[in-house]
């Protein structure tokens, strides 16, 4: 079945359009809505966005592919992003990454077979004073160690998201 926006998402897009003097400016916010609805941006999803905003599909694709946070393939339920930049590196982020790799059995960029976890190494998350920093979906986990990140993964694998995912 062809993809379609939920009524709620559609209303959200309508409200987004009101904030800008033209439709193109609504593109990135709308791509965010689409990614939330469908999990990632398949070609079909980008076409849906193009149709909804009445923009040429090429424009949608060129913007969507420029930005790293728009997923061009599915990601796991928990997107584990370990900061590898300088302040986190100085405070031991390599050990954090190694612990995640070992625990999940995947390399950065890969997703576990059960589709639960995707590991990624990312650039500075602007929380350098509490390094090392790991972001899982929307939430930041600061002052991480090899032990604390494994405990976090265990908690998430058990479905406990009470302390943020």
């Amino acid at each position: 079945m062809a993809q379609a926006f939920s009524p709620q998402a559609d209303a959200e897009i309508e409200a987004i359009l009101q904030r800008y003097p033209n439709r193109l400016a609504a593109l990135i916010p709308t791509l965010w809505v689409a990614q939330r609805e469908f999990g990632w941006l398949a070609e079909e999803t980008m076409e849906l966005v193009a149709t909804r905003l009445d923009l040429p599909p090429a424009k949608v694709i060129s913007t969507a592919t420029f930005y790293t946070m728009f997923h061009k393939k599915p990601v796991g339920r928990y997107h584990v992003q370990v900061c590898k930049n300088i302040s986190c590196y100085l405070r031991g982020s390599d050990e954090v990454t190694a612990a995640v790799k070992q625990k999940l059995g995947v390399a950065p960029g890969q997703t576990t077979a059960d589709g639960n976890f995707t590991l990624e190494e990312v650039e500075c998350l602007a929380a350098c004073g509490r390094a090392p920093v790991v972001q899982v979906n929307a939430d930041y986990h600061e002052w991480q160690t090899a032990e604390s990140v494994v405990a976090l993964l265990d908690r998430l694998a058990a479905g406990d998201t009470s302390g943020g995912v």
Binding site: R19, N22, L24, A25, A26, L27, I28, P29, L31, W32, K59, S62, T63, F66, Y67, T68, M69, F70, E123
Partner: peptide, 29 residues
């Protein structure tokens, strides 16, 4: 006055003010 947030999507270059404006307008930064 209306104030809106506008979310970027992962591109350090968009901190540069003119790249930021391109991005605000829906284009690559």
């Amino acid at each position: 006055l209306e104030v809106y947030t506008h979310s970027g999507a992962g591109a350090y270059i968009c901190g540069e003010e003119t790249a930021l404006l391109e991005s605000l307008e829906g284009k690559p930064g």
